[in-house]
Amino acid sequence: MKPDLKVKIGSLTLKNPVITASGTFGYGEEFHESFYDIAKLGAVVTKGISLKPRAGNEMPRVIETASGMLNAIGLANVGLDAFLSDKLPYLARTGAVVIANILGSTVEEYAEVARRLDSAEGVMALEQNISCPNVKCGGLQFGIDPESAAVAVRAVRKAFSRTLIVKLSPQASSIPAMARACEEAGADAISLINTIPAMAIDVRTKKPVLANVTGGLSGPAIKPVALRMVYEAAGAVKIPIIGIGGIMNAADAVEFMLAGASAIQIGTANFVRPMAAMEIIEGIEVYCRENSISRVGELTGALEVRS
């Protein structure tokens, strides 16, 4: 029997739990043209969108590290206007479930981007990236302190009527407290984790490898940390959790679901194997069949912790 792979995130029903992560999938065009029909995914998360276009950081922006990579792209993106006029129509035509990832450096910017996306046809949900420096608080991330995160989430909640996912930073002072603050502020789901701040040094030149000095670590190197954080978040809130961090194959995806995730996102794996997301959907289906699981949702939180 074919297992039921459908999962619910807020008011959205996804055909399977596999979503592609922000910043690793562009706006969907490259994958749809060259690799697979992106409507087969549970959903697509766009590159982070800001009110105005952002050029991003100087080169070098990426470097490989042990079992992963660092990036300091600097949230480069085409900006809200170009997203709406050039990128969204294409995405909508593919029939994919589109989740717009948004960023802001003030509460007002988040709210403005959210308000304009609320009236845009084809955006089914928002993913609010709170790992952004808050210019009004000396550049300290919204994602560190639950109170400042809650203010930003409430503003977006007011401005956007459909499903709202809040994407947590691994730098949050406490993951359970942060997840609860976002739930109370009106989030329909929590996704985590974003990249972990890190750096690489070239001993020959005695310089940092990245022009930005520090960058975000992603890939298999962060998976154990991400799993622990997903486990903690799932224990703290009732809303669905979307697990992210170093997922390379179906077994990794199942681990996140057992830890409490309802869905998962594929990030850096898209760079290493462009077909990764399709292989993972298939692999999850095979896992369910082999383990007599009729609904993939049964996996969520099914971890058996020894007592």
Binding site: G23, E30, M69
Partner: peptide, 21 residues
């Protein structure tokens, strides 16, 4: 330096004549 080679990571940018990546 390239991470993806397919245009989705924005890691390989260089500056065009107008200074855009």
């Amino acid at each position: 330096y390239m991470a993806c080679g397919i245009g989705v990571c924005l890691g390989c940018a260089c500056k065009d004549a107008d200074g855009n990546f």
